[in-house]
Design a protein around this nucleic acid. Structure first.
Length: 179
DNA sequence: ACGATGATGAAC
DNA sequence: TTCATCATCGTA
């Protein structure tokens, strides 16, 4: 038996693809957070794609601002912001430099909901603009879990009712119950 | 059904 | 400087 590579940290090339593809393929990958000497690894169960300047649900829809500047960078950066004055939202930037896109990580491990996830992993704006790599204390690994296509459900995104026709697009991806 | 809670961006 | 808005969640 050859020595299979069981763990592999996702690199920029994984994220530098169509945002919807990245959102779908992140299901089953592991979000890993280092806090001191402790490492917490949680399998990603739910994501949302925010795709380009025309996406009315995206922060980038009204152009570049100090807050969304990271979304315009090349793939592989964390985009973290505070919503409703309460919860931090964790996103990974995708696609080419200059094209604003990112994937929101909505659920991982036992945590359902993006605000609960960041609270549990102590993620805040200190991570904003940092790279997803071991040295930043927050990264994503492929641990060999394979999710069959039938195990993935598509649905409209949450909390974006203002986005008109973009609110109904199936840009949310989640593991079907029982997976 | 609603309030918490504060940063953000646009208007003035 | 003010003001409406907000990629959520816990309590009622």
């Amino acid at each position: 038996m050859t020595n299979m590579q069981l763990r592999h940290i996702l690199s920029d090339s994984f994220f530098c693809r169509d945002t919807r593809i990245v959102a779908r393929e992140l299901l089953g990958k592991f979000l890993v957070r280092r806090i001191g000497k402790e490492e917490i690894a949680l399998m990603i169960t739910e994501t949302e794609a925010y795709d380009g300047p025309h996406d009315k649900a995206s922060h980038a829809h009204r152009g570049e601002t100090p807050r969304n500047e990271v979304m315009f960078r090349e793939a592989g950066f964390w985009y973290v912001y505070l919503v409703y004055g309460v919860y931090h939202m964790l996103n990974i930037v995708t696609g080419e430099r200059g094209y604003p896109a990112a994937v929101l990580i909505r659920g991982a491990g036992e945590y359902d909901g993006p605000g609960k996830l960041t609270k549990a992993l102590r993620i805040n704006r200190q991570q904003n603009g940092k790279k997803a790599r071991r040295s930043s204390g927050l990264w994503i690994e492929d641990r060999g879990v394979v999710i069959p296509k039938l195990g993935i459900q598509k649905a409209p995104r949450i909390g974006v009712a203002y986005a008109e026709e973009w609110a109904k697009k199936p840009y949310r991806f989640l593991l079907r119950a029982g997976e």
